[in-house]
Design a protein around this nucleic acid. Structure first.
Lengths: 352, 352
DNA sequence: TACTATTCCTGAAACAGTTTCGGTCGAGCC
DNA sequence: GGCTCGACCGAAACTGTTTCAGGAATAGTA
C-alpha cells in the first residue's frame, strides 16, 4: 500500500485531491495540502505507473546541469552512475532543481511529480541549504563529492586529506621549502581538506606557513595563470605549487610554458585530477587522483539498495580513498641555493 | 485516442495483451505480438501515466553512455540538450540500448516500455544499422553529429568541410607545402569531410597529395603522439599538421613539447575542438570549432516540436556551420628553404 | 483410445495515477 | 433576497499494469 487512494482514505479526502497535491495543482486548500504532504512523507509513498513501481532515480543539479567548466568530472561521474544502475535496472533522469521546481513546491513533491524515487545530488557551495532541506524532508537522497555534518544527509565523497598530505610531503622530501598552494576561493570540503593537508604537512616538517603563498581563486584555467604569475613574480618565488583542482593545474602548466618556466626543473607542480586530464600535458602531472566514476558508482549502489530494501533508515556517510600519483612534474629544486636566491621571472626556461 | 484500450478494441484483443506486448512479456503469441506492434506504429501510440502524456525524451547511447575519451563533447552536448528541453518542459532520460533492450524487442517497444516519446541518438561508426532500424520503425528520433543518406533518418550535424578547408588554406597561405593530416581510422561523416577538405584544398593550391602524410589512427592522445613521431621522423618532415579531432591535437602538442619541437615556430598545428580544450594548452590551438552545445540544443528543439505538433512526417536534415579560429599554433614555416630541407628530429626546439 | 496433466495464451477484473466535470459553499454585489 | 463568481473538492471517466482464472491445445500415460 501507500498508494494515492490509501493516503486519501486515511485522510478522508479523495484520491483526486492527493493527486492534485502531488502535481502541485493550484486549486487545493493550503491546510489540506499540508496534511497530505505530511502523510506522504510519513507513509513513504512511492510513485507507480499502473501497478508497477517506477524505478527511476535522478541526478539532480541545483542549477544548470553538467557544466563543462568542471572538466571531465561530470562525464566520469555519469559513467559511474550508469554502471551502478545496472544491478537493479533503474532508470536515470537528469533534472535541474532551479529550472523545474515550482515555487512553493516541496522537494519531495517535486521529485515525486517527476516520478522519481530517489535522487543523487550534486553539491556546490551555494546549495548546501537546499540539500539540508531535502534531507530534512526525508526524501531518499545521497550527495556526491561533499561532506555534511548533519546526520540526516547521506553522502559519498573522496578523502583528499591523506593523499594531499602525501603530495606536499613528497615536495618537502624533494627539498622544496617555499611551496605555494592554490585553493578554490569558496571552499568546499574537498578544498578545505587539501588546504588542511598542506598546512599540516608544512607544520610537521617545521616549515613556517607563509600566508602570502596561499592563493584563493575561483577554479579554472585563468586561476592557474594568475597564481603562477603571482607566486613566481615575487622577490622570493616559490619552487613548487600545489594546485588543488584540475583546471588550475592546467592553467599553471600553460602559463609556465608561455613564460618559458621549465617544469619540473625550475618549478614543481602537483595537481588534482578527476579523470585523466593529467595525461593531457607534458610532462604528465604528478597529481592527487580521485575517481569520479567510482564515486558515482558507489552512490548509485547505495541509493538503489536503500530503495529496494525499503528501510529508509540506513544512512550513508562514506569516504573513498584517493591516491597520489608521481609523474613528471615534480623534481628537486634547481639548486640548494636557488631556494633562497631570487630567480628572474620570464625567459628562465631555455637555459640551464 | 491511441490508447492501449483503443488499440485493443481495434484489434479485438484485450488491453492486457497490448500492455503485455509493450512490456515484452513472454507469454503472448508471436502472431498477436506482430499485429499489435504494427498497429502501435501505425496509429502513433504515445505512453501516458494516468491521463497525462509522459513528456520524456531520451538521450540514447548504443553502448556505454558518456564515455570520457571523447573529451568535453558529451558534457557540452548534454548541456545543450537540457537547454533545449526547457521550452516544452520535457524531461530527459539517459538510456543505454545495448544494456537495457531485451533480446527480440523492437526499438519502438523498448522506448515505449521506458515511457519515452522521442529519442536523441548518439551515433558511432558501428551503430549506424541500429539507427537505420529505429528510423525504419518510425519512432520519433534525431541523430546528433552524424549524417545519413537514408531519408528516414533525421539528423543534425555540423559541417566540418567549409571550416576545415579554410583551415588547410590558412596553412597553405602561410607558406606550408608539406602538410600532414591525422584522421580517425574508422571514418564517420565528420572525419570524412575533414579529409575531403584537406584533399580539395591541396588540389586547388596545386599541391600534390602525398598519401604517406595521411595518418589513419584511432582518436586519442596517443594517436597524436604517434602521428607526430611519424610525420616529423622522416627525411622530408612536414611543417604543419591538421589533427581532425580534439584529443589527437592535444597529443601532438604534448609530444611536440616533449621532443622540444617549438609550436608554431618549427611546426604549425591545427586542431578541431568540441568545447574549449583548445584553450587548455599554450599556445592556444588554432582550430576548427564546432559547438556541441548548440548541436544538442537544436536537436532537442526539433524533436520536442515534432512531438508537440504530432506531425510525424516532418523530417530534419540540418547542418550547422562550424567556424575556424586562428590562435597561436600556426605560423609560416621556419624559413622558405626549410620547406624542402630535412630538419633534424628532436632537440630542434631550443635554438632558432 | 481415453484420461490426465501441463503448457501456452488470453481476457476479465482489480488496481495504480490523472484529469474532467460538476457541484457545494461562501463571499461579494445589485 | 437574488445573482454571480471563485475557491475547493469528489465522483466518475479514462490512462496503463498486473493478477487470477480459465480455455484450448498438447503431451504423457494407462
Amino acid at each position: 500500500m501507500a498508494s494515492v487512494r490509501a493516503i486519501a482514505s486515511r485522510l478522508k479526502v479523495s484520491p483526486a485531491t492527493v493527486s492534485r497535491v502531488l502535481n502541485n495543482h493550484p486549486d487545493v486548500d493550503e491546510a489540506t495540502r499540508e496534511r497530505v504532504l505530511a502523510c506522504i512523507n510519513e507513509v513513504g509513498y512511492v510513485p507507480r505507473v499502473g501497478r508497477r513501481l517506477t524505478n527511476v532515480v535522478a541526478l539532480a543539479y541545483p542549477d544548470e546541469p553538467v557544466r563543462s567548466e568542471y572538466g571531465a568530472f561530470e562525464p566520469a561521474l555519469l559513467s559511474g552512475i550508469m554502471r551502478g544502475l545496472e544491478e537493479h535496472r533503474f532508470d536515470l533522469k537528469l533534472v535541474s532543481i532551479r529550472r523545474d521546481k515550482l515555487p512553493g513546491e516541496t522537494y519531495t513533491q517535486f521529485f515525486l511529480r517527476k516520478g522519481i524515487r530517489g535522487v543523487i545530488l550534486r553539491c556546490f557551495r551555494y546549495n548546501r541549504p537546499m540539500i539540508a532541506s531535502i534531507a530534512q524532508e526525508g526524501f531518499p537522497s545521497v550527495v556526491v563529492a561533499e561532506e555534511f555534518e548533519d546526520a540526516k544527509v547521506n553522502f559519498i565523497r573522496s578523502d583528499s586529506y591523506a593523499s594531499s598530505r602525501r603530495a606536499v610531503e613528497h615536495l618537502i622530501g624533494l627539498g622544496h621549502r617555499r611551496i605555494g598552494i592554490v585553493v578554490h576561493n569558496v571552499a568546499d570540503t574537498d578544498h578545505a581538506d587539501r588546504r588542511r593537508a598542506y598546512d599540516d604537512a608544512l607544520y610537521c616538517a617545521g616549515i613556517k606557513l607563509d600566508p602570502s603563498l596561499v592563493m584563493e581563486l575561483p577554479a579554472g584555467i585563468s586561476a592557474g595563470e594568475q597564481a603562477l604569475d603571482s607566486l613566481l613574480g615575487r622577490s622570493d618565488p616559490v619552487t613548487a605549487i600545489f594546485a588543488t583542482n584540475p583546471m588550475t593545474a592546467l592553467g599553471i602548466m600553460r602559463r609556465a610554458q608561455e613564460l618559458g618556466v621549465v617544469v619540473p626543473r625550475n618549478l614543481s607542480v602537483v595537481g588534482v585530477d578527476d579523470s585523466d586530464v593529467r595525461m593531457h600535458v607534458w610532462p604528465r602531472l604528478t597529481a592527487v587522483t580521485q575517481d569520479a566514476s567510482s564515486l558515482g558508482f558507489e552512490a548509485t549502489i547505495w541509493l538503489t539498495h536503500a530503495l529496494m530494501r525499503r528501510e529508509k533508515k540506513t544512512s550513508c556517510r562514506r569516504t573513498i580513498a584517493t591516491s597520489f600519483e608521481v609523474n613528471g612534474t615534480t623534481a628537486p629544486p634547481a639548486t640548494p641555493e636557488a631556494v633562497r636566491r631570487p630567480v628572474g621571472h620570464g625567459g628562465a626556461g631555455t637555459h640551464s
